[in-house]
Design a protein around this nucleic acid. Structure first.
Lengths: 155, 155
DNA sequence: CAACCTGATGTGATAATATATCAAGATGCG
DNA sequence: CGCATCTTGATATATTATCACATCAGGTTG
């Protein structure tokens, strides 16, 4: 199998992933509150990008009380800003970041059949995208690269 | 200025662009109705990606009557399907396609300051993106490549 | 011509996604 | 503790997108 990592990642899941998220947020000077933990747990419980409302629903169920969507948005935004989650623009949805310590331009392969997204890092390709943008005088900040199509299982 | 076209385009604007859109739709076996013309004219009148509601507003003003958003969505979807318009996913907005005859994977450079988007074609880069996706067993259909950042004017 | 079919548009409702505002509560810290 | 700051809650509203079904315009056919 060809991976496109050019260095080792800490790809985490389950409790280890949640710990890693907490560590990343705290290192960034943010608090790891019980609400944030609940949102992260809910988000990481999905096997595909989840909308803010999906997460709201999951947190509400888990807590047995109604959580407001805007609280979830706030927290998801915070996660994205701190690289603990990423937003899949073409799906209006969010994914927990499996290796929060690592900063990459993300490439997502989003299956139009099952909705799952797989995350690819290819720093060389990302660099070419940034270069191509910069060549026109544009200052790239955040490349959004999301390939829509069919995953291997749904092909 | 460095362009990234590897072949000549018919980049059109104004009346010529509208004609080109009509020709492209008709060639695809679709009708060029007055409503579709009105939507295309409105869309091509924006100098940056316009939301479906922006277009609805513009068409309503132009016609002196209230147009429903869903009619506009229908028509924009048709335009996108026939390559006379494109959708900028990360902005939930649409752009008239300046060279409807030509089929590319689009790359947009979207300025977070002024909202304008410039369109780049780089078939070699697009090919690499598709290859990278395909290497994992994924079947790419529609790459979404939108670089957010600052345009030269806003830098 | 009348009956019918099809594609396009209109009407109205509603769903899904996202943000704004302000009050109240929790937390860190001197 | 008591103040400042950060976080969350409550509520409202804005924005984006879709659905169901009625109507209309144009052609085709009996």
């Amino acid at each position: 199998m060809a991976t496109h990592h050019d260095h080792a990642h800490d790809v985490r899941s389950g409790a280890a992933l949640i710990d890693a998220a907490e560590i990343a947020l705290v290192k960034a000077g943010e608090q790891w509150t019980s609400m944030r933990a609940a949102v992260f747990v809910a988000l990481s419980g999905f096997d595909r990008p989840a909308s803010a409302y999906d997460v709201t629903e999951a947190v509400s169920t888990a807590q047995g009380r109604r959580i407001a969507a805007n609280s979830v948005y706030r927290i998801l935004d915070l996660f994205v800003a701190n690289n603990v989650a990423t937003r899949v623009e073409s799906a209006n949805a969010y994914l927990a970041n499996a290796h929060p310590g690592c900063l990459h331009d993300c490439i997502f392969l989003v299956c139009d059949a099952c909705g799952r997204a797989t995350h690819v890092d290819d720093d060389q390709l990302s660099a070419r995208i940034r270069e191509t943008a910069a060549a026109t005088g544009f200052r790239p900040e955040k490349p959004v690269v999301e390939v829509r199509g069919r995953c291997a299982d749904c092909a």
